[in-house]
């Protein structure tokens, strides 16, 4: 379990959560990025444009 940094609600995590993974907060719907896994640290997931190269 971790805490949503947007609304403070608990966010449930599956066991094999990975750094970089994006979790949706079930309470406020925010997209949260897993920054670290031990312990789990969450941050707001950045909006990203796609810019592919050649």
């Amino acid at each position: 379990m971790a805490e949503c940094i947007e609304c403070g609600a608990s966010v449930s995590l599956h066991d094999d959560v990975e750094a970089g993974e994006i979790i949706d907060c079930g309470t406020c719907g925010s997209e949260l990025e897993v920054i670290e896994t031990d312990p789990v640290t969450l941050d707001t997931a950045p909006e990203l444009e796609e810019d592919w190269g050649e």
Partner: peptide
Amino acid sequence: KSAVRVLEDGKKKIRRGDHSGR
């Protein structure tokens, strides 16, 4: 643009270190 959102094994993830730009 060093970070991109990707779908890996059905999981949404952020991959950093991409060397691309606009």
